[in-house]
Write a protein that binds this DNA or RNA. Structure first.
Lengths: 192, 192
DNA sequence: AGACGGCGAGAACGAGCGTTCTCACCCGTG
DNA sequence: CACGGGTGAGAACGCTCGTTCTCGCCGTCT
């Protein structure tokens, strides 16, 4: 039921198009063509473009955070290493040829002024991301404030990487995060 | 000639509308109404909407950086204090009722995927901002890398303040910048 | 005075797009 | 076999919007 293949195919196409071109520059016709589905079926599953956008953002939110957490879990022997691994994951993302910035920052920039739904979706996504980094920070023996500051570095790296077109900001942000973490949580020692 | 009052009035209206609602959701008719000018005159001064958008971004870039530098110059007895004053200026900006994020990040999110002109304008603006922070950092006795990292904090604060709707990220970023600066440029020694 | 060039106001045009409708067709059921 | 409901393909509708055109008016130069 939650895995209706047609629905997923539509969302795959919508995600690719919305993310690459922006939401407003992608018509329902383009989604229909890309998904190889009829317009009637598209509107049966998503009664309006707003619904499709909401579903796109909801799925991307879940997928993005799941991917990040999976990388952190697999690459990290400690919360401290996990927090730093966030930036390696970001760097991989930034270096992908289809990388075009954070979909939520982009959507907010595009529709934040006129769509409360998009604003709310962006806020939820960023809240969850920042809360996750605060958790990692406190688990690593640092304060929640340090987690917030590291989140700001991650956000800045996303926008800077997108606009400049290089993945380098990930390493700069990681370096700064390492310093902040070391300053707050002490050396590599887990002794607190 | 660079201060044609009609041209300035049009740009004032365009800036207010583009910034508040997004570029694509503002028609030339809305600009005409807000500027109290005829459509013919509008097209005489800006032959296409793309030209108007470019002029909007160019003027905002200059004004924003000039405002920042003026605040830094007036509030700072030292380069170190100037670098930190950047975040006070950001906080004032974030707290303004019409604050809606960085116009360049928003424009990039809206049109970065389809408009090379907008992408280039955003890149120029961010390059200039980051270069300015690197200058301040090196003048304060820190490395250019520290300036870059502080720029990432500033960028992250902008997007987070915009999406969350609070000016608090400015203070968090300032706190982190202070730590990075102190770590790199030594203690309060420089600020005699 | 009379022709003329530029101007204001707004209509008009053409394209894009969100959404709905038409119509021919195929299906399982009585 | 007749039939009603759902489907695919695409046209159609109504709106927005970038851009241009029309028309009536006014100041100017000769």
């Amino acid at each position: 039921m939650s895995t209706d293949p047609t629905r997923e195919r539509i969302l795959d196409s919508a995600e690719e198009l919305f993310y690459a071109r922006g939401i407003q520059r992608v018509g329902m016709d383009a989604v229909r063509d890309a998904a190889g589905v009829t317009l009637r079926r598209l509107y049966q599953l998503f009664p309006s473009k707003g619904d499709l956008v909401e579903a796109y953002l909801a799925r991307r939110d879940a997928r993005w955070l799941r991917g990040l957490a999976a990388h952190v879990d697999s690459a990290a022997h400690s919360p401290r290493a996990g927090l730093l691994a966030v930036f390696d994951w970001l760097e991989d993302w930034f270096a992908r040829p289809d990388f075009h910035g954070c979909a939520f920052i982009n959507s907010f920039g595009e529709l934040g002024g006129t769509s409360p739904q998009v604003t709310a979706a962006a806020r939820r996504h960023k809240d969850a991301f920042h809360a996750y980094l605060r958790e990692l920070a406190t688990a690593a023996g640092a304060s929640a404030d340090t987690g917030t500051q590291i989140a700001l570095l991650a956000e800045g790296a996303m926008t800077t990487a997108a606009i400049s077109g290089t993945p380098a900001p990930a390493r700069q942000a990681k370096q700064a995060a390492l310093l902040l973490l070391t300053l707050d949580a002490g050396g590599v020692a887990a002794s607190a």
